[in-house]
Design a protein around this nucleic acid. Sequence first.
DNA 1: TTTTTATGTAACCAAAAAGTTACATAATTT
DNA 2: AAATTATGTAACTTTTTGGTTACATAAAAA
Lengths: 106, 106
Amino acid sequence: MRRDVFQAIADSTRREILHLLAHQQLNLNAVAANFNISRPAISKHIKILSECGLLMIQQQGRERFCQANLGKLKEVQDWVAQYSVFWDNKLLALNNFLVKEKKKRK
Amino acid sequence: MRRDVFQAIADSTRREILHLLAHQQLNLNAVAANFNISRPAISKHIKILSECGLLMIQQQGRERFCQANLGKLKEVQDWVAQYSVFWDNKLLALNNFLVKEKKKRK
DNA sequence: TTTTTATGTAACCAAAAAGTTACATAATTT
DNA sequence: AAATTATGTAACTTTTTGGTTACATAAAAA
């Protein structure tokens, strides 16, 4: 069972769940009410999200409130950021400069 | 067949392929030589990467040179960036400030 | 205390993913 | 011309994924 952040956000329903929970806590049923798939299906998605640390669950009586832990997405950002030289104009310019300098020194 | 960038980078082999091709072009066999799985398996991964635009293929005789198109990762960065307030200290501070201001005005 | 509600989970299913081996083909080398 | 090389792809297998329905259980409400 791969259970990493990259795999977790590969599914669009899970990305939507995170979006939904970004600024509010909801219990599982309330989350499910936002989707056309069954509650057990949502329950599974939430389990996956919580297993990889993207979501915390706070039990309150019979209810389970879900809270996104979006700080975990930093892992993704860090991975992506190492390539940002490929679209960030400032970094692109810097990169070109460094490449030229490197050639000069040969 | 979902074929989007999120799904493509969910697989760690594909992330490694992108890493390998970030600063060099290699033909398919040369890519495969870096992994323990079979050449056809790599061929499939490369197909997936190219289908979602993360990689370009340049035919040269019987060889196919693979070049990463990492600019495509901006899609991922853009998605992730909307949540960067959850780990970026500057943004965190700004966010806290705005939340307080909002409360004041109530 | 009975009923309703929030939830987990088992059992099942279909489709997709990730790999394999075997074979075909076209371009290069020898 | 024959052999080698780079590659695609078909056929197959196993595992994983994403969903379903049906049932169990504990908490809250009536």
